[in-house]
Design a protein around this nucleic acid. Structure first.
Lengths: 173, 173
DNA sequence: GATATTTGATATGGTCCATAACAATTATCA
DNA sequence: TGATAATTGTTATGGACCATATCAAATATC
C-alpha cells in the first residue's frame, strides 16, 4: 500500500477517541505535545547530556574511550603523582567503583598504578607513554569533531556562555 | 581563562605550579587542577545535570516524585487519551522499562491504565483526581523552589537563553 | 483465513551508583 | 612503646536505570 505523505496534520484530540483506523492512509502518529516539559530545566538538561555523550562516544569510537575514562586520563595527566582516592573523589567517582575503571585502563596500558614509597597503602597514578599518546589523539578528536560542533551550532560566544552557565550550576546550584 | 602551561615534570606531591599565590608550611589543601576538564562540554553538562536532579529530588521530597515520574505525569496531563507506547517513546523510555514505572504510579493512584475500546491491546493513560492534584502541587514546588533558583543564579534572560541552547543541543546535536 | 504486526508484559543482562566490610598500612594517643 | 583509630585499595553486594529478546493477546495485512 502506498502512503501519500500528506503534510496536513490536524492536531485533533478527541477525548472519546472515536476515530478508527478504518480510514486508510493515516499511519503517521501525531507528535505529542511536550507542553511545559520543554521548559523544564532538568528535562532539557538530561536530553542534551544524553545527546552530547552519544556524540562523544561516536567521535571516540576509534579510541574506545568513554567520557568518564577520558576525564580520568585528563585529570591524571594534569595531576601526576596523585593516588586513586584523590583522582576518583574530584571526579565524583566512589573509590570502590574506581577500581574496575582503573583495571580497564591499566589492562589497556593507558595508565599505571605505582605503589607509593611514602605511603605504601596508596597507589600513585600515572599515564603510560601509550596513555599519553592516546590522550593526545583523544584531545584532538574531541576538539575537532566534538567541541567544534558546538561552535557550529551555537557560535563561539554562545558556546562560552553556555559552558560558563553550566559550570555555575554545577558549582552553586 | 588561559592557564600558563608550565612544563611541570615534578613527580613529587609537593610540586605545585605557580598560581600567583604562595602559601608555605601548610598541608596544601590538595585541590586538584581540573585543567581542560572544566571546559569540556560533556563534563560540565553531566555535573550540572546531577546537581539539578539532586535539587529536584529535594524540592519534591514531600511528593516523592522523581524527574522521570514528573515528566510522565506532565505528558499524560498534556496528552490525554494516549497509550503507553506513545507516552513512553516521546520520553525516550523503552516500553519494557515503562511498565514498572507505570505500576508504581498506578499503585500510588496517580494515574490509571484504561483498556482502549478501539484497540483492546493498548492501555490509555489518564491522571486520576489524586494524580491531577499531586501534579498541580508538584508544578508549584518546581516553579517556586526549583526553577526559581535558576533565576536567582543566572537571571531571567540568561535562564531563557540556557534553556534555548540546551533544547537546541538536545534536538540538533 | 493464514500470516505478520502491534501492544503490554516478563525475563534477563549490562552498566552505573552506593554501602558495608576487609587486609594492609599508617596515624593517633594514652 | 603499644593499643586503638583512621586511611587506602579492594571485594562483595544491592539498587536504579537501560537495552534486548521473547511472549500472549489483539489487530492489521494480504
Amino acid at each position: 500500500m502506498t502512503v501519500s505523505k500528506t503534510a496536513e496534520k490536524s492536531s485533533e484530540k478527541s477525548g472519546e477517541a472515536a476515530k478508527g483506523r478504518k480510514d486508510a492512509g493515516e499511519p503517521l502518529a501525531e507528535t505529542l505535545q511536550l507542553g511545559e516539559l520543554s521548559e523544564q530545566l532538568g528535562y532539557v538538561l538530561k536530553r542534551a547530556q544524553l545527546k552530547v555523550f552519544e556524540n562523544f562516544l561516536r567521535c571516540m569510537a576509534s579510541l574506545q574511550l568513554t567520557p568518564a575514562q577520558f576525564s580520568v586520563l585528563l585529570l591524571v595527566e594534569k595531576n601526576p603523582g596523585r593516588n586513586q582516592t584523590e583522582i576518583a573523589s574530584t571526579l565524583g567517582i566512589l573509590r570502590p567503583n574506581f577500581v574496575a575503571m582503573l583495571d580497564n585502563l591499566e589492562s589497556r596500558d593507558l595508565c599505571a598504578r605505582i605503589r607509593s614509597t611514602n605511603d605504601r597503602r596508596s597507589h600513585i597514578l600515572v599515564l603510560t607513554d601509550k596513555g599519553k599518546a592516546v590522550l593526545a589523539r583523544a584531545k584532538k578528536l574531541v576538539a575537532t569533531k566534538h567541541e567544534a560542533r558546538l561552535n557550529d551550532l551555537l557560535g563561539q560566544s554562545n558556546r562560552e556562555a553556555l559552558i560558563a552557565m553550566l559550570s555555575k550550576i554545577a558549582n552553586e546550584f
